[in-house]
């Protein structure tokens, strides 16, 4: 579950590039969304990694 939650921003970043490609999202908005999603990915992925490390063995 944690893994999937962490992966969500990556899907958002990819989705935003697709929407931008279709012309429905302006370049500046796409870049802002991509940047925010990237930052969120690192926060969530590092959090998931830390949780996994400190979590129960099984």
């Amino acid at each position: 579950m944690r893994k999937w939650l962490a992966a969500l921003p990556l899907f958002v970043a990819l989705g935003a590039s697709w929407v931008h490609f279709t012309g429905a999202l302006a370049e500046s908005s796409f870049r802002q969304i991509f940047l925010a999603a990237s930052a969120l990915w690192f926060v969530l992925a590092l959090w998931a990694q830390r949780e996994k490390k400190s979590g129960p063995a099984n």
Binding site: A7, L10, A13, L14, A16, S17, W18, H20, F21, G23, E27, F30, F34, S38, W41, F42, A45, L46, Q49
Partner: peptide
């Protein structure tokens, strides 16, 4: 290991955003 999937997304999203 956290950065690797994101870098891959950067390649794909970068190319998609460039195509138009």
């Amino acid at each position: 290991t956290v950065a690797a999937p994101w870098v891959f997304v950067v390649f794909v999203a970068g190319a998609l955003a460039t195509l138009p």
